[in-house]
Design a protein around this nucleic acid. Structure first.
Length: 817
RNA sequence: GCCGAGGUGGCGGAACCGGCAGACGCGACGGACUUAAAAUCCGUUGGGCUUCGGCCCUUGCGGGUUCAAAUCCCGCCCUCGGCACCA
């Protein structure tokens, strides 16, 4: 026994040495091709849990692999440090958010270092420091100048728990806050928005990027593009100046089936168009809809409600008078806030018409329809009927014909609607980047000049949540002078959504200390875009969506030259514990520290890779971790232990060939699996290889060059996954430091080819025998061999052979009757 | 309701393009070492029958295609994720 595997000792040792030697610092001056490997940076919650490790360890292994494959790899790390939890903790414990956050960062840094990842710590970025948020504010100004940031009064999603408004993307499920699960309510407020809708069309593209189909689909659904027609209905009401109401529809072919019109209750024309005899009823209805929560209003289960407001519009295609109703199933925020009611061909309109006794007029004939009333809306394609000159047209053609006709007559125009709304970025909280805007009674809304950035967060603000920004009550912050006229002015007191901070952190990593701008153009040009981004899919329509928008926006400002920030994306799965995603706010975290202390980082890294496919995630269960621990110990002993017996036969002939063949096969398997993030099968292959080598060592004398080469290869294959163990064994086997500067082994395809294979013999598809044969065996030989086998004969004797199917290199199937 | 992913031993999971189902590991059982235990090592381990040669069944359920199906097709059931009155 040479020595025992002692991870506590060697891990610390190598981590310090790598850091002291700057092994993993990335430099632009390199002949190697660049590779920017990025893992979503963690929020500064205070503790790194197994879920973080699950995200970070395998992505580090991939980055290390790329490095050994000859790339100049940038693998940075930092902290997403602004946000509500810091402020909530401050309120609860009377500690300043800055203190709380920086203390957490210190602990997390220690934990992150224990992973043994190849992070380039010299590029650390912390979003809550003025040197960073100065540029967050700067980007706001750039977007503002470009007309991409604007302030508007709009119904906003208000979380009564977090006491702030939320973006649409942060309202999840049935209208609850993404962070705390509280049902959101509507509030009309003056808020800042980013004009993300301007990029709706380009955001649908995804050209030149390799992203999971799932994430692309989610983003496409979120954007919700609909192609249709905006149709004008005539309005002729005494004392009302408006002469039309526009509706958006994707079904212009059903225009002759309109039997009513529905406006959203908040539609601006409702007041004008309500006749005196309906005033009370309409007012009551609007009041009732206002009192409903989002959940109630959005429920698809509930009965349709609505009231007639007394006025009519004219369907310009057939001159029919159509009654105007209001109903809460029509949303003001989508399309024009008005809908043409075609009950025969839209299920919602159908239910509405049934509930209120409105006529249901069929204009698209279902196949075999004989004029009987419909039991439900017919929404499929069909033949146009009851539609004047369009009768007989298939509905798909009809769509075009009706659109053409309306465009000619000037009563309709082809248009596109999106479900996507502009991104609401104001937050009524303290711990975020201030919005650099000043309000002056003379000059109005004035952006803070660049030279005055950053607008610093005051240190002495009160954090009591009041529903308004704490900054509002901080006189020293609010009161300022107007940059234009020098007169009295007040600062904007809302801060920015933290997703604005994460919009550009990956740009900052390319030149973190730079102070003449958010980044150094040359360095940015070298590293960007990110080659491989990894993180959780929960950010599909938040961070990943905003960052794409942001990139396109600043590209149009001439600040960057690429269209997409992240070329490849991989979503690892979620680690579930006690029935929920592991997170500090849910209080179900398992910390890796005790495992690291007991078994070492290498064991934890390898175990997280081994438990299953990385994109699948799964429930946390440590029952298998001992398997990894045993394996690493076996590997350690395999490399260092003396042989038990001195009189073993040498490695030669077939054994030597087999040793080489298995080595090359393993290199191939490990390389291909690493490339595709199939860490679990990669670890399995390495275990198999280790087990095989242990057997060889039992039976043969290892005093042989082939053995030494094989062990070197094993260590190099292990290096990305278990970096400390590999480095230690590399040194102990007499190599020079560092294994992580070595090249990953390559395989020779010729060496992978087997000389023999196990021929499977089936009779009628059932396995009856198997026999090892040379790869070169001819089909006639296979047939003869198969038919002559004793175990086969039992099953074919006395039967007629119908067919013999031979799959070369695999099996032979004898079909008998 | 719609879209997507998935359902394989006691457990986590493997199986390339239709060709030996269950790799690799955990757990369990038996054995070695030990005064004993832990650790370690060796063996067995999907289920059922067995004359110990084998035979039959088995990848959520029911059909189908095929010499051959976990894999392809059709119809269901269940789990997870997303969307959900978007006109």
């Amino acid at each position: 026994m040479a020595s025992k595997y002692n991870p506590q000792e060697i891990e610390k040792k190598w981590q310090l040495r790598w850091e002291a030697d700057h092994v993993y610092e990335a430099h632009e001056a390199s002949k190697r091709p660049k590779w920017y490997a990025l893992t979503m940076f963690p929020y500064t919650s205070g503790d790194l849990h197994i879920g973080h490790w699950y995200a970070m360890a395998p992505s580090d292994v991939h980055a290390r692999f790329k490095r050994m494959r000859g790339y100049n790899v940038l693998h940075p790390i930092g902290f997403d440090a602004f946000g509500l939890p810091a402020e909530n903790a401050a309120i609860k414990h009377g500690i300043h958010p800055h203190t709380w956050t920086m203390r957490n960062i210190e602990n997390m840094r220690r934990q992150l270092k224990s992973i043994g990842a190849m992070y380039d710590w010299s590029r650390e970025v912390i979003t809550c420091l003025p040197e960073y948020y100065k540029w967050t504010e700067w980007f706001f100004l750039k977007l503002y100048e470009a007309g991409l940031a604007y302030r508007a009064k709009a119904p906003a999603n208000w979380c009564p728990q977090c006491k702030t408004v939320l973006a649409n993307e942060q309202v999840v499920g049935e209208g609850v806050c993404e962070r705390c699960g509280t049902p959101v309510i509507r509030k009309d407020l003056e808020q800042w928005f980013f004009r993300i809708t301007k990029y709706a069309e380009e955001l649908l593209e995804f050209s030149g990027i390799e992203w999971p189909e799932r994430v692309k689909t989610m983003q496409r659904n979120w954007i919700g593009k609909s192609v249709g027609v905006e149709i004008s209905f005539g309005l002729d009401v005494k004392g009302v100046s408006e002469k039309e109401i526009k509706v958006f529809t994707t079904r212009p072919d059903t225009i002759f089936g309109v039997t009513f019109m529905v406006l959203a209750p908040e539609h601006p024309l409702v007041a004008k168009l309500t006749t005196s005899e309906h005033k009370d009823e309409v007012r009551d209805y609007i009041e009732w809809t206002r009192g409903q929560t989002e959940i109630e209003r959005l429920s698809t289960e509930k009965e349709k409600t609505g009231v007639f407001i007394g006025s009519h519009v004219i369907n310009k295609l057939n001159g029919e008078r159509v009654p105007i109703w209001i109903a809460d199933y029509v949303l003001l925020s989508y399309g024009t806030g008005a809908v043409m009611g075609v009950p025969a061909h839209d299920q919602r309109d159908f239910e509405f018409a049934q509930d209120f006794g409105l006529p249901i007029k069929v204009v698209i004939s279902p196949p075999g329809w004989g004029g009987e009333p419909l039991k439900e809306a017919y929404v499929e394609a069909g033949t146009m009927v009851n539609s004047g000159q369009f009768n007989g047209l298939p509905s798909e053609q009809g769509k075009e014909a009706v659109s053409d006709f309306m465009e000619e007559k000037g009563c309709g125009i082809r248009t596109i609607s999106y479900r996507l709304r502009d991104w609401l970025i104001s937050r009524q909280r303290y711990w975020g980047a201030p919005i650099p805007i000043v309000y002056c009674s003379k000059c109005g809304t004035v952006p803070v000049p660049e030279k005055d950035l950053p607008v610093l967060l005051p240190e002495d603000a009160e954090f009591k949540p009041t529903g308004e920004s704490p900054l509002k009550y901080c006189a020293s912050f609010v009161n300022t002078t107007c940059p234009k006229c020098g007169g009295h002015a007040q600062r904007e007191t809302d801060t920015m959504d933290t997703f604005m901070c994460s919009n550009w952190y990956y740009l900052r990593y390319t030149s973190p200390g730079y102070d003449k701008g958010p980044f150094d153009d040359k360095k940015l040009a070298y590293w960007m875009p990110v080659d491989q981004y990894t993180g959780g899919a929960e950010h599909a329509v938040m961070h990943l969506f905003y960052a794409r928008f942001f990139t396109k926006a600043i590209r149009d400002l001439g600040l960057v030259k690429f269209d997409e920030p992240f070329t490849r994306l991989f979503n690892q799965g979620t680690v579930v514990f006690a029935g929920a995603k592991m997170s500090k706010s849910r209080g179900n975290v398992v910390t890796p520290d005790e495992y690291v202390t007991k078994l070492g980082s290498d064991t934890v890294r390898a175990y997280l890779m081994f438990v299953g496919p990385w994109d699948q995630g799964g429930g946390w269960d440590d029952s298998g971790i001992s398997g990894i621990w045993r394996w690493l110990n076996r590997a350690w002993n395999l490399v260092l232990d003396e042989q038990k017996s001195e009189s073993l036969p040498p490695i030669e002939g077939a054994i030597e060939n087999e040793l080489r063949r298995r080595t090359h096969k393993t290199i191939k398997k490990v390389s291909e699996d690493l490339e595709k993030f199939r860490f679990n099968t990669m670890i399995a292959a390495l275990m198999e290889f280790t087990n095989y080598l242990a057997k060889v060592k039992e039976e043969r004398s290892i005093v042989h060059n082939a053995w030494k080469e094989t062990i070197d290869t094993l260590l190099l294959l292990l290096a990305p996954s278990v970096p400390h163990l590999a480095e230690e064994l590399w040194e102990r086997t007499g190599h020079s430091y560092s294994i992580h500067n070595q090249s990953f082994p390559s395989w020779d395809e010729k060496m992978v080819v087997e000389e023999q294979f196990t021929l499977v013999i089936q009779v009628n598809g059932k396995l009856r025998d198997r026999v090892d044969v040379p790869v070169s065996i001819a089909e006639t030989e296979v047939r003869e061999l198969a038919l002559s086998r004793e175990r086969v004969r039992v099953h074919i004797d006395g039967k007629q052979i119908k067919d013999i199917i031979y799959v070369p290199g695999r099996l032979v199937n004898i079909v008998v009757k």
